[in-house]
């Protein structure tokens, strides 16, 4: 097959995989039906069954992610809509999110170091609690791998959103601020989705935590990473 038809095929396959995963997630509302996880596995399955290497998929990827930049910039809008909460709880939000993001980065890198993993892996795992488009950039700036960073982000988001609410209930964390900020800091957009299901107030806190974690991590990660490798 020539490249142009492969590119069209991969784009169609990705859109279909996304639509199916989205339908399943909205239908069953379970974090394991994660759109990115399921969609990615479906696309990889299609590529493997057609014996296509990743390189054949790359041109389609460039076209499909063209709008990711503007989409990421649009994340400022939920942040702006919740600015009242920033005024009220600014110090608490920034302090706790900074603490959580630092712990997440340090512990993830520490375990990879202990397991003697490649420096590229250590760099790519550092921003794993940050929303994917920003995590990918943070990893790239420090010399990591974008797809690896995206995979760690999705793994963290899936784990955090699947078990986060239960883990919090086990130790009787019940304050809406605490549940929202914890889920948003650790499990980015996937955590925000779970927090929103619990209630509007938690969802707002979680979306603030996600945005601030992204900004904080992008500022701090390059220095922490340099210390670890």
């Amino acid at each position: 097959m020539e490249q142009i038809s492969i590119t069209i095929l991969t784009i169609v396959a990705t859109v279909l995989a996304y639509s199916l995963s989205r339908y399943l997630f909205l239908r069953y509302q379970h974090p394991l039906f994660n759109m990115v996880l399921l969609g990615t596995l479906l696309v990889i399955a299609v590529l493997l069954s057609l014996r296509l290497p990743y390189e054949a998929y790359a041109p389609g990827k460039e076209i499909m992610t063209f709008l990711l930049g503007p989409a990421t910039v649009a994340l400022a809008i939920p942040l702006y809509k919740n600015r009242g909460l920033i005024k009220q709880y600014g110090l608490l939000i920034c302090g706790s999110v900074a603490l959580g993001s630092t712990i997440s980065m340090l512990m993830a890198m520490l375990f990879c170091k202990l397991g003697r993993l490649d420096p590229a892996v250590i760099i790519s795992i550092a921003p794993k609690s940050v929303t994917a488009p920003i995590a990918v950039e943070i990893a790239q700036i420090s010399g990591g791998d974008p797809s690896l960073a995206a995979a760690f982000v999705v793994a963290t988001g899936t784990f955090g959103s699947a078990l986060g609410p239960t883990l919090l209930s086990w130790v009787r964390i019940s304050h809406p601020n605490a549940r929202g900020l914890a889920l948003g800091t650790v499990a980015h957009a996937q955590g925000v989705a779970m927090a929103l299901m619990e209630g509007e107030d938690r969802g707002a806190m979680a979306s603030l935590a996600m945005a601030i974690a992204a900004i904080f991590t992008s500022l701090v990660a390059p220095f922490l990473v340099a210390y670890f490798i």
Binding site: G39, V43, L48, K61, M64, L67, A71, P133
Partner: peptide, 19 residues
């Protein structure tokens, strides 16, 4: 864009097949 932001992560994460 925000409603469907997850879509963009699929093409990025597909790179995982090399890992």
């Amino acid at each position: 864009l925000l409603k469907h932001i997850s879509f963009f992560f699929i093409p990025i994460a597909v790179g995982l097949m090399n890992w």
